[in-house]
Design a binder for these strands. Structure first.
Lengths: 106, 106
DNA sequence: CGAACTGTTCAACTATTATCGAACCATGAG
DNA sequence: CTCATGGTTCGATAATAGTTGAACAGTTCG
């Protein structure tokens, strides 16, 4: 399961990966810490395993997340440091408004 | 020709609009100042007018650029302030690496 | 007005991406 | 080893996005 090197991250690929609401929301939750794949379903409800896996692939191939074996499961984590070194400030700028959108002011 | 209000900008739409190399590069050049549409062709060479217009539409509908009449032409400008107020730091984080990619270190 | 100039919109086609069931693979438990 | 569990990959289909020529619209200039 290939992951791009930190130095090879492509900005447009990262932006594209994060331009989907479900993927952005997941990236947001991953700031809290790694999650098993089963915990990566969108908040609203379950989606088919294959669909989820596809989104994870998009994020992984863009270099946004790492996906590694963990016991009999797999653990998904945000590549914070790699992203920060290649695109400083990007993650913070993208995820902080996403957090606000997730819990709109009332 | 509709432009979304600053308050209505949607993060995923902005990210998507900037996830295309030609559009990202244009946004980058727009930091230098407004451009007429004719000057918005990608650096490599000319593209059909309709294709360019379509990319401008994507950027405009996402709220990244403003497109207003200017004499017999149209002037395209970056919506810096609106983007900054809605998504602080995003533009800087996205466009500064884009500048680097445009002129790779030798 | 009418022609030239700049761009946008339309419509058709192509290409990429999303979705999802089914088949498949790896790991750990019994 | 065998089975159940947790995920990925495959293949087909649907949906969305990109590309383009041609038609159309607004502005200026003669």
């Amino acid at each position: 399961m290939p992951h791009p090197d930190a130095a090879d991250l492509v900005l447009t690929d990262v932006l594209f990966a994060l331009s989907d609401p479900a993927r952005l929301e997941l990236a947001c939750r991953l700031t809290e810490g790694p999650l098993e794949v089963a915990a990566c379903h969108p908040v609203g409800g379950e989606i088919p395993k294959s669909t989820l896996s596809h989104h994870l692939k998009t994020l992984r191939e863009a270099g946004v997340v790492r996906n590694e074996p963990y016991g009999r499961q797999r653990r998904v984590s945000l590549r914070r440091d790699d992203l920060e070194s290649r695109f400083p400030g990007l993650l913070a700028a993208v995820l902080s408004p996403a957090l606000v959108e997730a819990s709109p002011p009332r």
